[in-house]
Design a protein around this nucleic acid. Structure first.
Length: 398
DNA sequence: CCTCCACAGGAAGCGCAGGAGT
DNA sequence: ACTCCTGCGCTTCCTGTGGAGG
Protein backbone atom coordinates (compact mmCIF):
# COMPACT_ATOMS: atom_id res chain seq x y z
CA UNK A 1 0.00 0.00 0.00
CA UNK A 2 2.72 2.42 0.98
CA UNK A 3 4.71 1.48 -2.08
CA UNK A 4 1.68 2.30 -4.12
CA UNK A 5 1.36 5.67 -2.46
CA UNK A 6 4.99 6.47 -3.07
CA UNK A 7 4.62 5.55 -6.66
CA UNK A 8 1.57 7.70 -6.98
CA UNK A 9 3.28 10.75 -5.55
CA UNK A 10 6.40 10.40 -7.62
CA UNK A 11 4.45 9.89 -10.78
CA UNK A 12 2.33 12.84 -9.79
CA UNK A 13 5.37 15.07 -9.53
CA UNK A 14 6.89 13.83 -12.75
CA UNK A 15 3.69 13.92 -14.63
CA UNK A 16 3.47 16.67 -17.12
CA UNK A 17 0.95 19.25 -16.17
CA UNK A 18 -1.43 20.77 -18.66
CA UNK A 19 -0.91 24.15 -17.13
CA UNK A 20 1.79 26.68 -17.71
CA UNK A 21 0.21 28.97 -15.17
CA UNK A 22 -3.15 28.13 -13.74
CA UNK A 23 -3.69 31.57 -12.22
CA UNK A 24 -4.16 33.00 -15.68
CA UNK A 25 -7.37 31.05 -16.09
CA UNK A 26 -9.01 32.51 -13.00
CA UNK A 27 -11.09 35.63 -13.07
CA UNK A 28 -8.84 37.46 -10.64
CA UNK A 29 -6.29 37.80 -13.36
CA UNK A 30 -6.41 41.00 -15.35
CA UNK A 31 -4.96 40.51 -18.82
CA UNK A 32 -2.87 43.24 -20.39
CA UNK A 33 -5.08 43.23 -23.40
CA UNK A 34 -8.80 43.11 -22.89
CA UNK A 35 -10.51 41.81 -25.96
CA UNK A 36 -13.75 43.10 -27.46
CA UNK A 37 -14.11 45.93 -25.00
CA UNK A 38 -12.25 48.70 -26.81
CA UNK A 39 -15.34 50.78 -27.25
CA UNK A 40 -16.26 50.62 -23.58
CA UNK A 41 -12.71 51.25 -22.43
CA UNK A 42 -12.44 54.34 -24.57
CA UNK A 43 -15.80 55.67 -23.44
CA UNK A 44 -14.84 55.25 -19.80
CA UNK A 45 -11.45 56.76 -20.41
CA UNK A 46 -13.05 59.80 -22.01
CA UNK A 47 -15.27 60.30 -18.99
CA UNK A 48 -12.47 59.86 -16.49
CA UNK A 49 -9.70 61.66 -18.31
CA UNK A 50 -10.45 65.11 -16.81
CA UNK A 51 -9.27 63.68 -13.51
CA UNK A 52 -5.73 63.81 -14.84
CA UNK A 53 -6.04 67.57 -15.06
CA UNK A 54 -7.61 67.69 -11.63
CA UNK A 55 -10.99 68.47 -13.04
CA UNK A 56 -13.86 66.52 -11.64
CA UNK A 57 -15.07 63.78 -13.99
CA UNK A 58 -18.78 63.13 -14.34
CA UNK A 59 -20.25 60.36 -12.28
CA UNK A 60 -20.53 57.20 -14.28
CA UNK A 61 -22.91 54.32 -14.28
CA UNK A 62 -21.83 51.04 -15.80
CA UNK A 63 -24.31 48.33 -16.52
CA UNK A 64 -23.90 44.79 -17.83
CA UNK A 65 -24.71 41.24 -16.77
CA UNK A 66 -22.21 39.08 -14.91
CA UNK A 67 -19.01 38.20 -16.68
CA UNK A 68 -19.21 40.94 -19.29
CA UNK A 69 -15.92 42.43 -18.19
CA UNK A 70 -17.10 45.37 -16.12
CA UNK A 71 -14.84 44.77 -13.16
CA UNK A 72 -11.86 43.77 -15.25
CA UNK A 73 -12.13 46.88 -17.38
CA UNK A 74 -12.41 49.20 -14.40
CA UNK A 75 -9.53 47.55 -12.61
CA UNK A 76 -7.49 47.78 -15.76
CA UNK A 77 -8.21 51.47 -16.22
CA UNK A 78 -7.50 52.16 -12.57
CA UNK A 79 -4.13 50.53 -12.71
CA UNK A 80 -3.32 52.55 -15.81
CA UNK A 81 -4.37 55.72 -14.03
CA UNK A 82 -2.27 54.83 -11.03
CA UNK A 83 0.78 54.47 -13.19
CA UNK A 84 0.34 57.86 -14.84
CA UNK A 85 -0.31 60.04 -11.83
CA UNK A 86 -0.25 58.95 -8.25
CA UNK A 87 -0.21 62.09 -6.17
CA UNK A 88 -3.50 63.84 -6.75
CA UNK A 89 -5.58 61.07 -8.17
CA UNK A 90 -6.85 58.32 -5.97
CA UNK A 91 -8.77 55.48 -7.60
CA UNK A 92 -10.57 53.31 -5.06
CA UNK A 93 -12.21 50.09 -6.12
CA UNK A 94 -14.77 48.50 -3.83
CA UNK A 95 -16.78 45.37 -4.30
CA UNK A 96 -19.94 45.98 -2.33
CA UNK A 97 -20.96 42.37 -2.35
CA UNK A 98 -18.01 41.12 -0.34
CA UNK A 99 -19.54 40.11 2.94
CA UNK A 100 -18.06 41.58 6.07
CA UNK A 101 -16.17 44.10 3.98
CA UNK A 102 -18.44 46.59 2.37
CA UNK A 103 -22.02 45.48 2.75
CA UNK A 104 -23.20 48.14 5.17
CA UNK A 105 -22.91 51.90 5.26
CA UNK A 106 -20.46 51.78 8.12
CA UNK A 107 -18.29 49.08 6.61
CA UNK A 108 -18.24 50.82 3.30
CA UNK A 109 -17.00 54.04 4.81
CA UNK A 110 -14.52 52.12 6.92
CA UNK A 111 -13.23 50.42 3.81
CA UNK A 112 -12.82 53.68 1.93
CA UNK A 113 -10.99 55.21 4.88
CA UNK A 114 -8.70 52.22 5.10
CA UNK A 115 -7.94 52.53 1.40
CA UNK A 116 -6.92 56.10 2.10
CA UNK A 117 -4.54 54.81 4.75
CA UNK A 118 -6.65 55.73 7.69
CA UNK A 119 -7.44 52.61 9.69
CA UNK A 120 -10.76 52.47 11.53
CA UNK A 121 -12.15 49.80 13.84
CA UNK A 122 -14.73 47.39 12.49
CA UNK A 123 -17.36 48.67 14.82
CA UNK A 124 -17.78 51.09 17.67
CA UNK A 125 -17.77 54.52 16.07
CA UNK A 126 -20.83 56.51 15.13
CA UNK A 127 -21.28 56.44 11.36
CA UNK A 128 -21.52 60.20 11.42
CA UNK A 129 -17.95 60.50 12.64
CA UNK A 130 -16.74 58.37 9.76
CA UNK A 131 -18.30 60.83 7.35
CA UNK A 132 -16.56 63.68 9.10
CA UNK A 133 -13.26 61.83 9.08
CA UNK A 134 -13.64 61.05 5.40
CA UNK A 135 -14.47 64.65 4.69
CA UNK A 136 -11.41 65.97 6.53
CA UNK A 137 -9.10 63.39 5.07
CA UNK A 138 -10.12 63.99 1.49
CA UNK A 139 -10.24 67.75 1.70
CA UNK A 140 -6.71 67.95 3.04
CA UNK A 141 -5.38 68.63 -0.39
CA UNK A 142 -6.47 69.19 -3.93
CA UNK A 143 -7.24 65.77 -5.31
CA UNK A 144 -9.72 63.65 -7.16
CA UNK A 145 -11.12 60.49 -5.62
CA UNK A 146 -12.47 57.98 -8.10
CA UNK A 147 -14.78 55.68 -6.25
CA UNK A 148 -15.77 52.53 -8.13
CA UNK A 149 -18.63 50.73 -6.43
CA UNK A 150 -18.88 47.28 -7.92
CA UNK A 151 -22.11 45.30 -7.46
CA UNK A 152 -23.78 48.48 -6.37
CA UNK A 153 -27.21 46.91 -6.80
CA UNK A 154 -26.49 44.48 -3.97
CA UNK A 155 -25.59 47.34 -1.67
CA UNK A 156 -28.60 49.45 -2.52
CA UNK A 157 -30.91 46.48 -2.15
CA UNK A 158 -29.54 45.92 1.30
CA UNK A 159 -29.13 49.35 2.81
CA UNK A 160 -30.82 51.76 0.45
CA UNK A 161 -29.41 54.71 -1.41
CA UNK A 162 -28.62 56.92 1.57
CA UNK A 163 -24.91 56.30 1.29
CA UNK A 164 -24.69 57.39 -2.32
CA UNK A 165 -26.81 60.39 -1.59
CA UNK A 166 -24.52 61.40 1.26
CA UNK A 167 -21.44 60.89 -0.85
CA UNK A 168 -22.77 63.10 -3.61
CA UNK A 169 -23.68 65.70 -1.01
CA UNK A 170 -20.27 65.66 0.57
CA UNK A 171 -19.02 66.53 -2.85
CA UNK A 172 -20.76 69.87 -2.89
CA UNK A 173 -19.20 70.82 0.42
CA UNK A 174 -15.65 69.84 -0.37
CA UNK A 175 -13.36 72.79 -1.03
CA UNK A 176 -10.23 71.25 -2.43
CA UNK A 177 -11.02 67.70 -3.36
CA UNK A 178 -13.73 66.09 -5.45
CA UNK A 179 -15.26 62.63 -5.47
CA UNK A 180 -16.48 60.94 -8.60
CA UNK A 181 -18.59 57.86 -8.28
CA UNK A 182 -18.50 55.00 -10.72
CA UNK A 183 -21.45 52.73 -10.07
CA UNK A 184 -21.26 49.24 -11.45
CA UNK A 185 -24.31 47.02 -11.57
CA UNK A 186 -25.49 43.91 -13.30
CA UNK A 187 -29.10 44.75 -12.71
CA UNK A 188 -30.46 47.71 -14.62
CA UNK A 189 -33.86 47.70 -12.97
CA UNK A 190 -32.36 48.60 -9.62
CA UNK A 191 -32.16 52.25 -10.59
CA UNK A 192 -35.95 52.31 -10.27
CA UNK A 193 -35.60 52.05 -6.50
CA UNK A 194 -33.22 54.98 -6.33
CA UNK A 195 -34.14 58.41 -5.18
CA UNK A 196 -34.56 60.44 -8.39
CA UNK A 197 -31.86 62.86 -7.26
CA UNK A 198 -29.42 60.03 -6.66
CA UNK A 199 -30.31 58.41 -9.96
CA UNK A 200 -29.75 61.48 -12.03
CA UNK A 201 -26.48 62.37 -10.36
CA UNK A 202 -25.20 58.82 -10.56
CA UNK A 203 -25.94 58.38 -14.22
CA UNK A 204 -24.56 61.59 -15.62
CA UNK A 205 -22.86 59.21 -17.99
CA UNK A 206 -23.94 55.68 -18.74
CA UNK A 207 -22.07 52.89 -20.38
CA UNK A 208 -23.49 49.52 -21.23
CA UNK A 209 -21.50 46.31 -21.43
CA UNK A 210 -23.30 43.90 -23.76
CA UNK A 211 -22.91 40.16 -23.24
CA UNK A 212 -20.14 38.47 -25.18
CA UNK A 213 -21.25 36.28 -28.03
CA UNK A 214 -19.81 32.82 -28.62
CA UNK A 215 -17.18 34.07 -31.08
CA UNK A 216 -15.91 36.74 -28.72
CA UNK A 217 -15.78 34.26 -25.87
CA UNK A 218 -13.79 31.96 -28.07
CA UNK A 219 -11.27 34.73 -28.70
CA UNK A 220 -10.97 35.44 -25.02
CA UNK A 221 -10.50 31.79 -24.17
CA UNK A 222 -7.92 31.33 -26.85
CA UNK A 223 -6.00 34.34 -25.67
CA UNK A 224 -5.88 32.95 -22.16
CA UNK A 225 -5.33 29.35 -23.14
CA UNK A 226 -2.30 30.37 -25.11
CA UNK A 227 -0.54 31.66 -22.02
CA UNK A 228 -2.06 29.41 -19.38
CA UNK A 229 -2.06 25.99 -21.02
CA UNK A 230 0.67 24.05 -22.73
CA UNK A 231 0.29 24.04 -26.48
CA UNK A 232 -1.68 21.18 -27.98
CA UNK A 233 -3.39 19.90 -24.85
CA UNK A 234 -6.83 21.03 -25.96
CA UNK A 235 -8.69 18.78 -28.34
CA UNK A 236 -10.54 20.23 -31.23
CA UNK A 237 -13.77 21.84 -30.12
CA UNK A 238 -13.04 22.17 -26.41
CA UNK A 239 -12.67 25.91 -26.42
CA UNK A 240 -15.63 26.23 -28.74
CA UNK A 241 -17.73 24.19 -26.39
CA UNK A 242 -16.79 26.25 -23.33
CA UNK A 243 -17.58 29.37 -25.29
CA UNK A 244 -20.90 27.99 -26.49
CA UNK A 245 -22.07 27.00 -23.02
CA UNK A 246 -21.10 30.33 -21.55
CA UNK A 247 -22.66 32.22 -24.43
CA UNK A 248 -25.93 30.49 -23.76
CA UNK A 249 -25.75 31.60 -20.16
CA UNK A 250 -25.76 35.36 -20.73
CA UNK A 251 -22.36 35.56 -22.40
CA UNK A 252 -20.50 35.16 -19.15
CA UNK A 253 -16.74 35.18 -19.68
CA UNK A 254 -16.07 34.21 -16.09
CA UNK A 255 -18.08 31.09 -16.63
CA UNK A 256 -16.21 30.25 -19.80
CA UNK A 257 -12.87 30.51 -18.04
CA UNK A 258 -14.05 28.40 -15.13
CA UNK A 259 -15.24 25.71 -17.50
CA UNK A 260 -11.94 25.55 -19.32
CA UNK A 261 -9.88 25.56 -16.15
CA UNK A 262 -11.90 22.86 -14.43
CA UNK A 263 -12.02 20.75 -17.59
CA UNK A 264 -8.24 20.88 -17.69
CA UNK A 265 -7.99 19.99 -14.02
CA UNK A 266 -10.29 17.03 -14.48
CA UNK A 267 -8.40 15.77 -17.49
CA UNK A 268 -5.13 16.11 -15.66
CA UNK A 269 -6.37 14.33 -12.58
CA UNK A 270 -7.74 11.54 -14.68
CA UNK A 271 -4.37 11.24 -16.43
CA UNK A 272 -5.90 11.68 -19.83
CA UNK A 273 -3.69 12.81 -22.65
CA UNK A 274 -5.83 15.65 -23.84
CA UNK A 275 -8.67 17.81 -22.73
CA UNK A 276 -11.81 16.68 -24.51
CA UNK A 277 -15.38 17.85 -24.80
CA UNK A 278 -16.33 15.18 -22.31
CA UNK A 279 -14.22 16.91 -19.71
CA UNK A 280 -16.11 20.10 -20.37
CA UNK A 281 -19.38 18.34 -19.62
CA UNK A 282 -17.93 16.99 -16.41
CA UNK A 283 -16.61 20.41 -15.55
CA UNK A 284 -20.05 21.88 -15.94
CA UNK A 285 -21.43 19.36 -13.48
CA UNK A 286 -18.60 19.82 -11.05
CA UNK A 287 -18.90 23.59 -11.01
CA UNK A 288 -22.57 23.40 -10.24
CA UNK A 289 -21.97 20.82 -7.54
CA UNK A 290 -19.18 22.80 -5.92
CA UNK A 291 -21.19 25.98 -5.97
CA UNK A 292 -24.18 24.38 -4.35
CA UNK A 293 -22.37 22.40 -1.68
CA UNK A 294 -20.10 25.26 -0.78
CA UNK A 295 -23.05 27.59 -0.49
CA UNK A 296 -25.05 25.15 1.59
CA UNK A 297 -22.17 24.29 3.90
CA UNK A 298 -21.39 27.87 4.74
CA UNK A 299 -24.93 28.75 5.65
CA UNK A 300 -25.82 29.38 9.28
CA UNK A 301 -27.43 26.44 11.03
CA UNK A 302 -31.03 27.50 10.77
CA UNK A 303 -30.67 28.23 7.08
CA UNK A 304 -29.36 24.72 6.68
CA UNK A 305 -32.27 23.32 8.63
CA UNK A 306 -34.65 25.28 6.44
CA UNK A 307 -33.01 24.06 3.28
CA UNK A 308 -32.99 20.50 4.59
CA UNK A 309 -36.69 20.78 5.32
CA UNK A 310 -37.29 21.81 1.75
CA UNK A 311 -35.15 18.95 0.45
CA UNK A 312 -37.12 16.48 2.53
CA UNK A 313 -40.43 17.78 1.26
CA UNK A 314 -39.15 17.68 -2.26
CA UNK A 315 -38.06 14.09 -1.87
CA UNK A 316 -41.52 13.12 -0.75
CA UNK A 317 -42.62 14.11 -4.21
CA UNK A 318 -44.69 17.11 -3.19
CA UNK A 319 -45.40 19.04 -6.32
CA UNK A 320 -45.92 22.31 -4.52
CA UNK A 321 -44.02 23.19 -1.38
CA UNK A 322 -45.44 26.03 0.67
CA UNK A 323 -43.95 28.11 3.45
CA UNK A 324 -46.23 26.54 6.03
CA UNK A 325 -45.17 23.00 5.07
CA UNK A 326 -41.53 23.95 5.33
CA UNK A 327 -42.07 25.46 8.75
CA UNK A 328 -43.76 22.31 10.03
CA UNK A 329 -40.90 20.10 8.92
CA UNK A 330 -38.44 22.62 10.26
CA UNK A 331 -40.08 22.56 13.68
CA UNK A 332 -39.89 18.79 13.97
CA UNK A 333 -36.33 18.84 12.70
CA UNK A 334 -35.37 21.33 15.39
CA UNK A 335 -37.11 19.30 18.05
CA UNK A 336 -35.28 16.13 17.13
CA UNK A 337 -31.93 17.89 17.03
CA UNK A 338 -32.42 19.97 20.13
CA UNK A 339 -32.29 23.37 18.50
CA UNK A 340 -34.30 26.32 19.63
CA UNK A 341 -36.88 27.10 16.99
CA UNK A 342 -37.12 30.41 15.19
CA UNK A 343 -40.39 32.09 14.32
CA UNK A 344 -42.12 31.59 11.03
CA UNK A 345 -41.47 35.22 10.19
CA UNK A 346 -37.76 34.58 10.43
CA UNK A 347 -37.95 31.35 8.43
CA UNK A 348 -39.81 33.30 5.77
CA UNK A 349 -36.80 35.60 5.53
CA UNK A 350 -34.41 32.65 5.45
CA UNK A 351 -36.39 31.18 2.58
CA UNK A 352 -36.05 34.34 0.57
CA UNK A 353 -32.33 34.37 1.33
CA UNK A 354 -32.04 30.84 -0.04
CA UNK A 355 -33.91 32.09 -3.07
CA UNK A 356 -31.43 34.89 -3.58
CA UNK A 357 -28.58 32.43 -3.29
CA UNK A 358 -30.14 30.55 -6.17
CA UNK A 359 -30.54 27.28 -4.29
CA UNK A 360 -34.31 27.42 -4.55
CA UNK A 361 -36.70 29.49 -6.55
CA UNK A 362 -39.85 30.88 -5.05
CA UNK A 363 -42.93 32.51 -6.39
CA UNK A 364 -45.65 34.23 -4.42
CA UNK A 365 -48.95 32.73 -5.47
CA UNK A 366 -52.48 33.05 -4.31
CA UNK A 367 -54.47 29.93 -3.63
CA UNK A 368 -57.69 31.80 -3.19
CA UNK A 369 -59.63 30.40 -0.30
CA UNK A 370 -56.45 28.67 0.81
CA UNK A 371 -54.46 31.81 1.21
CA UNK A 372 -51.48 33.54 -0.24
CA UNK A 373 -48.10 31.96 0.14
CA UNK A 374 -44.84 31.12 -1.52
CA UNK A 375 -44.47 28.23 -3.86
CA UNK A 376 -40.99 26.83 -3.48
CA UNK A 377 -39.06 24.86 -6.03
CA UNK A 378 -35.52 23.57 -6.04
CA UNK A 379 -33.11 25.29 -8.38
CA UNK A 380 -30.33 22.71 -8.33
CA UNK A 381 -29.38 19.70 -10.40
CA UNK A 382 -30.39 16.19 -9.39
CA UNK A 383 -26.86 15.19 -8.51
CA UNK A 384 -26.36 18.22 -6.29
CA UNK A 385 -29.63 17.44 -4.62
CA UNK A 386 -28.51 13.92 -3.73
CA UNK A 387 -25.20 15.06 -2.36
CA UNK A 388 -26.70 17.89 -0.36
CA UNK A 389 -29.26 15.60 1.12
CA UNK A 390 -26.71 13.06 2.28
CA UNK A 391 -24.50 15.84 3.66
CA UNK A 392 -27.37 17.14 5.72
CA UNK A 393 -28.51 13.72 6.87
CA UNK A 394 -25.03 13.21 8.25
CA UNK A 395 -25.19 16.53 10.04
CA UNK A 396 -28.62 16.24 11.57
CA UNK A 397 -30.81 13.60 13.15
CA UNK A 398 -33.58 12.89 10.72
C1' DC B 1 -69.85 40.60 -5.14
C1' DC B 2 -67.97 39.66 -0.74
C1' DT B 3 -65.25 36.89 2.49
C1' DC B 4 -61.56 35.19 4.40
C1' DC B 5 -57.39 32.11 4.22
C1' DA B 6 -52.30 31.82 4.84
C1' DC B 7 -49.26 33.79 4.38
C1' DA B 8 -45.92 38.18 2.54
C1' DG B 9 -43.34 41.52 4.12
C1' DG B 10 -42.88 46.31 6.59
C1' DA B 11 -41.80 48.59 11.19
C1' DA B 12 -40.12 48.76 15.59
C1' DG B 13 -37.54 47.20 18.96
C1' DC B 14 -34.76 43.92 21.87
C1' DG B 15 -30.42 41.84 23.46
C1' DC B 16 -26.01 40.89 22.39
C1' DA B 17 -21.07 41.56 21.03
C1' DG B 18 -17.58 44.63 20.48
C1' DG B 19 -15.04 49.03 20.15
C1' DA B 20 -14.27 54.19 21.71
C1' DG B 21 -14.12 57.81 24.86
C1' DT B 22 -14.04 59.17 29.54
C1' DA C 1 -15.81 50.57 35.10
C1' DC C 2 -19.18 52.88 32.72
C1' DT C 3 -21.61 54.97 28.91
C1' DC C 4 -22.44 55.40 24.12
C1' DC C 5 -22.31 53.85 19.60
C1' DT C 6 -22.63 50.29 15.93
C1' DG C 7 -24.22 45.87 13.28
C1' DC C 8 -26.75 41.66 13.52
C1' DG C 9 -30.06 38.08 14.32
C1' DC C 10 -34.23 37.72 15.88
C1' DT C 11 -39.16 38.52 17.77
C1' DT C 12 -43.51 40.91 18.04
C1' DC C 13 -46.98 43.16 15.99
C1' DC C 14 -48.78 44.72 12.16
C1' DT C 15 -51.15 45.77 7.59
C1' DG C 16 -51.79 44.07 2.91
C1' DT C 17 -53.52 40.90 -0.64
C1' DG C 18 -55.10 37.45 -5.01
C1' DG C 19 -58.48 34.75 -5.84
C1' DA C 20 -61.54 30.13 -4.68
C1' DG C 21 -65.56 29.35 -2.63
C1' DG C 22 -69.68 30.84 -0.86
Amino acid sequence: MQEKLKKFFSSYINKESFFLDKKLLTHNYIPDKILHRDEQIMSIAKVLAPALKLEQPSNLFIYGTTGTGKSVVIKHIFSELKSTNTTNLKPVYINCKLKKTADTEYRMLAYILRELNFPVPETGLPTESLYNKLFELIDEKEQIILLALDELDALVKKIGDGLIYNLTRINTELKNAKISIIGISNDLSFTDDLDPRVRSSLSEEEIIFPPYNALQLKDILQQRAKIALKPGVCSEGVIEKCAAIAAQEQGDARRALDLLRVAAELAERNEDKKITEKHVDLAEQKLELDRVTELAKTQPRHSQLTLYSILKLFEKGKDQILTGDVYEVYLSLCKRNGYKTLTQRRISDLISELDMLGLISTKVVSKGRYGRTREIRLAIAKKSFDILKSTFSNMFET
